[in-house]
Amino acid sequence: MSIQHFRVALIPFFAAFCLPVFAHPETLVKVKDAEDQLGARVGYIELDLNSGKILESFRPEERFPMMSTFKVLLCGAVLSRVDAGQEQLGRRIHYSQNDLVEYSPVTEKHLTDGMTVRELCSAAITMSDNTAANLLLTTIGGPKELTAFLHNMGDHVTRLDRWEPELNEAIPNDERDTTMPAAMATTLRKLLTGELLTLASRQQLIDWMEADKVAGPLLRSALPAGWFIADKSGAGERGSRGIIAALGPDGKPSRIVVIYTTGSQATMDERNRQIAEIGASLIKHW
Protein backbone atom coordinates (compact mmCIF):
# COMPACT_ATOMS: atom_id res chain seq x y z
CA MET A 1 0.00 0.00 0.00
CA SER A 2 1.42 3.40 -0.98
CA ILE A 3 1.79 6.23 1.51
CA GLN A 4 -1.10 8.09 -0.14
CA HIS A 5 -3.34 5.02 -0.02
CA PHE A 6 -2.36 4.56 3.63
CA ARG A 7 -3.32 8.17 4.31
CA VAL A 8 -6.82 7.86 2.87
CA ALA A 9 -7.42 4.46 4.46
CA LEU A 10 -6.67 5.94 7.87
CA ILE A 11 -8.77 9.10 7.55
CA PRO A 12 -11.50 7.66 9.83
CA PHE A 13 -8.84 6.13 12.15
CA PHE A 14 -7.00 9.39 12.73
CA ALA A 15 -10.19 11.40 13.06
CA ALA A 16 -11.50 9.03 15.71
CA PHE A 17 -8.53 9.84 17.95
CA CYS A 18 -8.57 13.60 17.44
CA LEU A 19 -9.65 15.91 20.21
CA PRO A 20 -13.33 16.90 20.08
CA VAL A 21 -14.12 19.61 17.57
CA PHE A 22 -16.08 22.66 18.57
CA ALA A 23 -17.99 25.08 16.41
CA HIS A 24 -16.91 28.70 16.33
CA PRO A 25 -19.63 31.25 15.56
CA GLU A 26 -16.98 33.74 14.44
CA THR A 27 -16.90 32.00 11.08
CA LEU A 28 -20.66 32.46 10.67
CA VAL A 29 -20.21 36.15 11.45
CA LYS A 30 -17.82 36.28 8.49
CA VAL A 31 -20.28 34.37 6.28
CA LYS A 32 -22.99 36.90 7.08
CA ASP A 33 -20.54 39.72 6.44
CA ALA A 34 -19.77 38.18 3.04
CA GLU A 35 -23.48 38.31 2.23
CA ASP A 36 -23.49 42.01 3.04
CA GLN A 37 -20.36 42.66 1.03
CA LEU A 38 -21.57 40.71 -2.00
CA GLY A 39 -25.21 41.69 -1.78
CA ALA A 40 -26.08 38.05 -2.36
CA ARG A 41 -27.03 34.84 -0.62
CA VAL A 42 -24.17 32.76 0.78
CA GLY A 43 -24.58 29.14 1.82
CA TYR A 44 -22.06 27.52 4.14
CA ILE A 45 -21.62 24.21 5.90
CA GLU A 46 -18.80 22.57 7.79
CA LEU A 47 -18.91 18.83 8.58
CA ASP A 48 -16.67 16.65 10.68
CA LEU A 49 -15.26 14.16 8.17
CA ASN A 50 -15.29 11.22 10.56
CA SER A 51 -18.69 11.55 12.21
CA GLY A 52 -20.59 13.62 9.67
CA LYS A 53 -21.63 15.99 12.46
CA ILE A 54 -22.53 19.50 11.33
CA LEU A 55 -20.14 21.91 13.03
CA GLU A 56 -21.49 25.13 11.53
CA SER A 57 -23.98 26.02 8.83
CA PHE A 58 -25.73 28.97 7.24
CA ARG A 59 -28.55 28.51 4.72
CA PRO A 60 -27.67 24.78 4.61
CA GLU A 61 -30.99 23.77 3.05
CA GLU A 62 -31.37 26.50 0.48
CA ARG A 63 -30.73 25.72 -3.17
CA PHE A 64 -27.69 27.10 -4.97
CA PRO A 65 -26.34 26.49 -8.48
CA MET A 66 -23.77 23.67 -8.48
CA MET A 67 -21.73 25.05 -11.34
CA SER A 68 -18.54 23.05 -11.88
CA THR A 69 -18.57 21.52 -8.41
CA PHE A 70 -20.76 18.81 -9.96
CA LYS A 71 -17.67 17.47 -11.72
CA VAL A 72 -16.51 15.74 -8.54
CA LEU A 73 -19.86 13.94 -8.30
CA LEU A 74 -19.62 13.05 -11.99
CA CYS A 75 -16.21 11.47 -11.59
CA GLY A 76 -17.49 9.67 -8.51
CA ALA A 77 -20.21 8.17 -10.70
CA VAL A 78 -17.61 7.21 -13.31
CA LEU A 79 -15.46 5.54 -10.66
CA SER A 80 -18.44 3.58 -9.37
CA ARG A 81 -18.87 2.19 -12.88
CA VAL A 82 -15.17 1.32 -12.95
CA ASP A 83 -15.56 -0.52 -9.65
CA ALA A 84 -18.55 -2.41 -11.07
CA GLY A 85 -16.60 -3.48 -14.18
CA GLN A 86 -18.74 -1.29 -16.44
CA GLU A 87 -15.99 1.19 -17.34
CA GLN A 88 -12.21 1.32 -17.62
CA LEU A 89 -10.12 4.33 -16.70
CA GLY A 90 -7.74 3.46 -19.53
CA ARG A 91 -10.46 3.45 -22.21
CA ARG A 92 -9.69 6.06 -24.85
CA ILE A 93 -12.50 8.33 -26.04
CA HIS A 94 -12.24 10.11 -29.38
CA TYR A 95 -14.16 13.28 -30.12
CA SER A 96 -14.33 16.03 -32.73
CA GLN A 97 -14.17 19.80 -32.99
CA ASN A 98 -17.96 19.84 -32.87
CA ASP A 99 -17.84 18.39 -29.34
CA LEU A 100 -15.76 21.25 -27.96
CA VAL A 101 -17.58 23.81 -25.81
CA GLU A 102 -16.53 26.99 -24.07
CA TYR A 103 -13.57 26.61 -21.71
CA SER A 104 -11.91 23.36 -22.69
CA PRO A 105 -8.18 24.04 -22.12
CA VAL A 106 -7.18 20.37 -22.06
CA THR A 107 -9.53 18.62 -24.46
CA GLU A 108 -8.93 21.18 -27.21
CA LYS A 109 -5.33 19.96 -27.38
CA HIS A 110 -6.24 16.31 -27.97
CA LEU A 111 -8.56 16.33 -30.97
CA THR A 112 -6.21 14.01 -32.84
CA ASP A 113 -5.41 11.41 -30.21
CA GLY A 114 -8.43 11.61 -27.89
CA MET A 115 -8.22 11.13 -24.13
CA THR A 116 -8.68 8.28 -21.69
CA VAL A 117 -11.46 8.25 -19.12
CA ARG A 118 -8.82 8.83 -16.45
CA GLU A 119 -7.43 11.82 -18.33
CA LEU A 120 -10.91 13.25 -18.85
CA CYS A 121 -11.69 13.06 -15.13
CA SER A 122 -8.38 14.70 -14.34
CA ALA A 123 -9.10 17.49 -16.83
CA ALA A 124 -12.65 17.96 -15.53
CA ILE A 125 -11.59 18.27 -11.88
CA THR A 126 -8.11 19.80 -11.98
CA MET A 127 -8.73 22.23 -14.85
CA SER A 128 -12.55 22.33 -14.85
CA ASP A 129 -12.54 21.40 -18.55
CA ASN A 130 -16.14 21.59 -19.78
CA THR A 131 -15.82 19.32 -22.80
CA ALA A 132 -14.23 16.67 -20.58
CA ALA A 133 -17.27 16.86 -18.31
CA ASN A 134 -19.70 16.52 -21.23
CA LEU A 135 -17.82 13.52 -22.62
CA LEU A 136 -17.90 11.87 -19.19
CA LEU A 137 -21.60 12.64 -18.83
CA THR A 138 -22.14 10.83 -22.10
CA THR A 139 -20.41 7.72 -20.73
CA ILE A 140 -22.86 7.44 -17.84
CA GLY A 141 -25.98 8.28 -19.86
CA GLY A 142 -26.31 12.03 -19.40
CA PRO A 143 -27.32 14.45 -16.62
CA LYS A 144 -30.40 12.46 -15.58
CA GLU A 145 -28.25 9.41 -14.91
CA LEU A 146 -25.97 11.42 -12.65
CA THR A 147 -29.05 12.55 -10.73
CA ALA A 148 -30.18 8.91 -10.49
CA PHE A 149 -26.73 7.92 -9.17
CA LEU A 150 -27.04 10.58 -6.47
CA HIS A 151 -30.55 9.42 -5.57
CA ASN A 152 -29.23 5.90 -5.14
CA MET A 153 -26.65 7.32 -2.72
CA GLY A 154 -29.47 8.82 -0.67
CA ASP A 155 -29.12 12.36 -2.02
CA HIS A 156 -32.62 13.34 -3.15
CA VAL A 157 -31.75 17.03 -3.35
CA THR A 158 -28.84 17.42 -5.76
CA ARG A 159 -29.80 17.33 -9.42
CA LEU A 160 -28.15 17.82 -12.77
CA ASP A 161 -30.42 18.65 -15.68
CA ARG A 162 -28.26 20.16 -18.40
CA TRP A 163 -24.83 19.99 -19.97
CA GLU A 164 -21.89 22.36 -19.97
CA PRO A 165 -22.00 25.30 -20.25
CA GLU A 166 -25.80 25.81 -19.99
CA LEU A 167 -25.91 24.33 -16.49
CA ASN A 168 -24.18 27.47 -15.17
CA GLU A 169 -27.09 29.76 -16.06
CA ALA A 170 -28.11 30.19 -12.39
CA ILE A 171 -31.60 31.60 -12.96
CA PRO A 172 -33.19 32.64 -9.63
CA ASN A 173 -35.70 30.09 -8.27
CA ASP A 174 -34.75 27.59 -10.99
CA GLU A 175 -34.08 24.22 -9.35
CA ARG A 176 -32.26 22.83 -12.36
CA ASP A 177 -28.60 22.00 -11.78
CA THR A 178 -28.73 22.89 -8.09
CA THR A 179 -27.87 21.45 -4.71
CA MET A 180 -28.02 22.50 -1.07
CA PRO A 181 -24.87 22.93 1.03
CA ALA A 182 -25.97 20.19 3.45
CA ALA A 183 -26.73 17.73 0.66
CA MET A 184 -23.48 18.40 -1.18
CA ALA A 185 -21.39 18.07 1.98
CA THR A 186 -23.02 14.78 2.92
CA THR A 187 -22.64 13.37 -0.58
CA LEU A 188 -19.01 14.43 -0.84
CA ARG A 189 -18.29 12.80 2.52
CA LYS A 190 -19.89 9.55 1.33
CA LEU A 191 -17.78 9.56 -1.83
CA LEU A 192 -14.53 10.18 0.05
CA THR A 193 -15.01 7.99 3.12
CA GLY A 194 -17.96 5.65 2.58
CA GLU A 195 -18.21 2.18 1.11
CA LEU A 196 -19.79 3.32 -2.15
CA LEU A 197 -16.39 3.37 -3.87
CA THR A 198 -13.46 1.04 -3.41
CA LEU A 199 -10.43 2.32 -1.53
CA ALA A 200 -8.55 2.71 -4.82
CA SER A 201 -11.37 4.79 -6.31
CA ARG A 202 -11.72 6.94 -3.19
CA GLN A 203 -7.99 7.58 -3.35
CA GLN A 204 -8.19 8.46 -7.04
CA LEU A 205 -11.02 10.92 -6.47
CA ILE A 206 -9.25 12.72 -3.64
CA ASP A 207 -6.01 12.76 -5.66
CA TRP A 208 -7.76 14.55 -8.51
CA MET A 209 -9.24 17.08 -6.09
CA GLU A 210 -5.91 17.59 -4.35
CA ALA A 211 -4.37 18.39 -7.74
CA ASP A 212 -6.95 21.12 -8.48
CA LYS A 213 -5.19 23.91 -10.39
CA VAL A 214 -7.95 26.52 -10.69
CA ALA A 215 -9.05 27.13 -7.09
CA GLY A 216 -5.96 28.97 -5.87
CA PRO A 217 -7.64 32.31 -5.01
CA LEU A 218 -10.28 30.64 -2.79
CA LEU A 219 -9.68 28.48 0.30
CA ARG A 220 -6.17 27.51 -0.78
CA SER A 221 -5.05 31.11 -0.46
CA ALA A 222 -5.83 31.01 3.28
CA LEU A 223 -4.13 27.70 4.09
CA PRO A 224 -1.08 27.65 6.37
CA ALA A 225 1.88 25.50 5.39
CA GLY A 226 1.37 21.82 6.02
CA TRP A 227 -2.40 21.85 5.67
CA PHE A 228 -4.17 19.42 3.34
CA ILE A 229 -6.85 20.44 0.86
CA ALA A 230 -8.66 18.63 -1.92
CA ASP A 231 -11.23 20.86 -3.58
CA LYS A 232 -13.29 21.80 -6.60
CA SER A 233 -14.52 25.28 -7.42
CA GLY A 234 -17.32 26.49 -9.64
CA ALA A 235 -18.36 29.74 -11.31
CA GLY A 236 -21.59 30.68 -13.01
CA GLU A 237 -23.77 33.50 -14.24
CA ARG A 238 -25.50 36.05 -12.01
CA GLY A 239 -22.56 36.35 -9.66
CA SER A 240 -22.47 32.67 -8.78
CA ARG A 241 -19.40 31.10 -7.20
CA GLY A 242 -18.79 28.00 -5.13
CA ILE A 243 -16.30 25.55 -3.69
CA ILE A 244 -16.43 22.12 -2.09
CA ALA A 245 -13.44 20.87 -0.14
CA ALA A 246 -11.97 18.32 2.25
CA LEU A 247 -9.28 19.95 4.35
CA GLY A 248 -7.38 19.84 7.60
CA PRO A 249 -4.07 20.39 9.37
CA ASP A 250 -1.15 17.96 9.66
CA GLY A 251 -1.39 16.92 6.03
CA LYS A 252 -4.72 15.09 6.26
CA PRO A 253 -8.36 16.09 5.83
CA SER A 254 -10.63 16.22 8.86
CA ARG A 255 -13.54 18.39 7.70
CA ILE A 256 -15.75 18.94 4.69
CA VAL A 257 -16.50 22.56 3.80
CA VAL A 258 -19.02 23.73 1.20
CA ILE A 259 -19.54 27.37 0.24
CA TYR A 260 -21.91 28.68 -2.43
CA THR A 261 -23.02 32.16 -3.39
CA THR A 262 -25.33 33.48 -6.09
CA GLY A 263 -27.03 36.70 -7.11
CA SER A 264 -24.11 39.09 -6.64
CA GLN A 265 -23.12 42.02 -8.81
CA ALA A 266 -19.57 41.79 -7.44
CA THR A 267 -16.58 41.02 -9.62
CA MET A 268 -15.05 37.55 -9.70
CA ASP A 269 -12.07 38.85 -7.73
CA GLU A 270 -14.34 40.16 -4.99
CA ARG A 271 -16.29 36.89 -4.82
CA ASN A 272 -13.01 35.02 -4.55
CA ARG A 273 -11.81 37.37 -1.81
CA GLN A 274 -14.94 36.90 0.28
CA ILE A 275 -14.68 33.11 0.07
CA ALA A 276 -10.99 33.31 0.94
CA GLU A 277 -11.84 35.44 3.99
CA ILE A 278 -14.39 32.86 5.12
CA GLY A 279 -11.63 30.29 4.80
CA ALA A 280 -9.24 32.44 6.81
CA SER A 281 -11.80 32.73 9.61
CA LEU A 282 -12.43 28.99 9.53
CA ILE A 283 -8.72 28.27 9.91
CA LYS A 284 -8.17 30.91 12.59
CA HIS A 285 -10.92 29.40 14.72
CA TRP A 286 -10.26 25.75 13.83
Rank of each mutant, 00 (worst) to 15 (best):
residue 26 E to L: 09
residue 26 E to A: 02
residue 27 T to Y: 14
residue 28 L to P: 09
residue 29 V to Y: 08
residue 30 K to W: 14
residue 30 K to V: 15
residue 34 A to F: 10
residue 34 A to H: 10
residue 37 Q to P: 13
residue 40 A to D: 02
residue 42 V to I: 00
residue 44 Y to G: 12
residue 50 N to Q: 01
residue 50 N to T: 04
residue 50 N to I: 04
residue 51 S to A: 09
residue 57 S to R: 05
residue 58 F to G: 14
residue 59 R to W: 04
residue 61 E to V: 10
residue 71 K to E: 05
residue 72 V to I: 12
residue 74 L to Q: 09
residue 75 C to Y: 09
residue 78 V to Y: 12
residue 79 L to E: 06
residue 81 R to F: 13
residue 82 V to Q: 13
residue 82 V to L: 06
residue 86 Q to A: 10
residue 89 L to T: 03
residue 90 G to T: 10
residue 90 G to C: 14
residue 92 R to H: 12
residue 93 I to W: 14
residue 94 H to M: 15
residue 94 H to V: 09
residue 96 S to C: 05
residue 98 N to L: 05
residue 99 D to F: 00
residue 101 V to P: 04
residue 102 E to T: 07
residue 103 Y to R: 01
residue 106 V to R: 15
residue 106 V to G: 06
residue 111 L to C: 05
residue 118 R to D: 14
residue 118 R to A: 15
residue 121 C to D: 10
residue 121 C to V: 13
residue 125 I to F: 13
residue 128 S to V: 04
residue 129 D to K: 05
residue 130 N to M: 02
residue 132 A to S: 14
residue 133 A to E: 02
residue 136 L to V: 04
residue 137 L to V: 08
residue 141 G to P: 07
residue 143 P to S: 04
residue 149 F to Y: 14
residue 152 N to W: 12
residue 159 R to E: 13
residue 165 P to I: 02
residue 165 P to S: 07
residue 166 E to Q: 04
residue 168 N to H: 11
residue 169 E to V: 07
residue 169 E to P: 01
residue 172 P to Y: 06
residue 173 N to L: 08
residue 173 N to S: 08
residue 174 D to V: 04
residue 177 D to R: 05
residue 178 T to N: 01
residue 180 M to F: 00
residue 182 A to M: 15
residue 186 T to P: 05
residue 190 K to D: 15
residue 196 L to S: 12
residue 196 L to R: 13
residue 200 A to Q: 14
residue 201 S to F: 14
residue 201 S to Y: 11
residue 202 R to G: 11
residue 204 Q to E: 10
residue 205 L to I: 06
residue 206 I to R: 12
residue 207 D to G: 05
residue 208 W to P: 04
residue 211 A to C: 03
residue 212 D to K: 01
residue 213 K to P: 03
residue 214 V to R: 04
residue 216 G to Y: 09
residue 221 S to R: 04
residue 222 A to M: 14
residue 223 L to G: 04
residue 232 K to Y: 11
residue 233 S to I: 08
residue 234 G to V: 06
residue 235 A to H: 11
residue 246 A to R: 06
residue 247 L to V: 05
residue 248 G to I: 14
residue 249 P to C: 06
residue 249 P to K: 03
residue 251 G to K: 12
residue 253 P to L: 14
residue 255 R to L: 04
residue 256 I to Q: 14
residue 258 V to W: 12
residue 259 I to Q: 04
residue 259 I to K: 01
residue 265 Q to P: 11
residue 265 Q to K: 11
residue 266 A to P: 15
residue 269 D to N: 08
residue 270 E to D: 15
residue 271 R to Y: 01
residue 272 N to A: 10
residue 277 E to I: 15
residue 279 G to F: 12
residue 280 A to P: 02
residue 280 A to K: 06
residue 284 K to Q: 04
residue 285 H to A: 04
